[in-house]
């Protein structure tokens, strides 16, 4: 069975857009929330896929950026809802309930964190890179747990979803629309990026670092920029995720979440534009349907993952398109 990849990609996006509309029609708001969740996880994984799929860097610490995005939203909204002042020493603010501002802050903070984490981690490679990114994840996780001012272990609840000009974000389909639009926007940017000279260099870097340096290109700078872009996108997803649940907790920083993101990408197809999106949809569907049947649904997820790793290295997209390599 071989289907051209762009047909699958188009069908998946149309499916993701159609399902909530159908749910709206039959009045099943929970389904809309479920699809929104898949879209947000997809966005986070698309971010990770920039470094994992194209750069070949297995970051086991992307929960850091997801959590930072979440906490950026949580902290800004918390101050806004309690009418308290956030004093950063050089800057004071009363917080905000405006999504666009929160997104910018979430992406900015994630990008800055990715810059400094990348500066350290990207000097290593292979297992060491995996371990050092994991270590950063754990640092942020335990920091969040002990950060009593913002709920510590219990996390922070935000009572009313943040606002977007002209929309009522509390209506599930409208919030879904926002998330879906952002996902599409990021996918378009990503599709351009991977064919542009920068994407060419990043792609080459995965295959031979010596080659890239010999062509006069600075491997470290390319990897660092990819890591920063990747972190910013995952951070944006974190802010949306927090808004979806109206809740942030240290769990967003957990290594399990970093692992889940990697699993999503492997299920869908490493290094493929839509791999993370398909992976996220499958993951959320399994979580919902299998999770409803048995508490042990992770066992089945594990079996599926095993099957894909053993028999279909290109993920589901690889199986459908009949191409194992992502860049063939």
């Amino acid at each position: 069975m071989r289907i051209a990849e762009h047909w699958i990609n188009g069908a998946v996006l149309i499916g993701i857009a159609a399902l909530p509309l159908w749910a709206l029609f039959i009045d099943e708001p929970f389904t809309i929330t479920l699809v929104t969740r898949a879209v947000i996880l997809a966005l986070a994984a698309v971010g990770l896929n920039i470094v994992l799929g194209f750069g070949g860097l297995v970051s086991f610490g992307h929960a850091v950026f997801f959590g930072l995005g979440g906490y950026a939203m949580g902290i800004l909204a918390y101050h806004a809802q309690t009418y308290t002042v956030l004093d950063l020493g050089f800057f004071t603010t009363e917080g905000t309930k405006s999504m666009p501002i929160i997104w910018l802050v979430a992406m900015g903070i994630s990008a800055i964190a990715a810059f400094f984490i990348g500066l350290l981690c990207l000097r290593t490679s292979g297992v060491y890179f995996i371990m050092i990114t994991l270590a950063f994840g754990q640092m942020f996780y335990y920091f969040a747990i002990s950060w009593a001012q913002y709920g510590g272990e219990d996390g922070l609840s935000i009572y009313v979803r943040n606002g977007f000009p002209g929309l009522n974000t509390l209506v599930p389909i409208q919030f879904f629309g926002i998330c879906f639009a952002l996902l599409c926007l990021v996918l378009i940017l990503k599709a351009r990026l991977q064919r542009a000279p920068f994407g060419l260099a990043l792609n080459a870097l995965r295959q031979s670092e010596a080659r890239v340096a010999t062509m006069g290109l600075n491997p470290m700078r390319i990897k660092l920029l990819a890591f920063v872009l990747s972190g910013a996108i995952t951070g944006l997803a974190g802010a949306l995720f927090a808004d979806l649940n109206r809740f942030v907790s240290p769990a967003m920083f957990s290594w399990q979440f970093s692992g889940e993101l990697i699993v999503l990408i492997i299920i869908g197809g490493v290094g493929r534009l839509m791999g993370p999106v398909i992976g996220a949809c499958v993951f959320v569907a399994l979580e919902h349907f299998l999770g409803g049947l048995t508490d042990f649904w992770h066992v089945y997820l594990g079996l599926i993952l095993l099957g894909i790793v053993l028999f279909g290295r290109g993920g589901l997209l690889g199986l459908l398109t009949g191409k194992e390599g992502a860049h063939v």
Binding site: A196, P197, A201
Partner: peptide, 8 residues
């Protein structure tokens, strides 16, 4: 390398 939009 710092071009992000146009196809190489």
């Amino acid at each position: 390398a710092w071009r992000f939009w146009r196809r190489a």
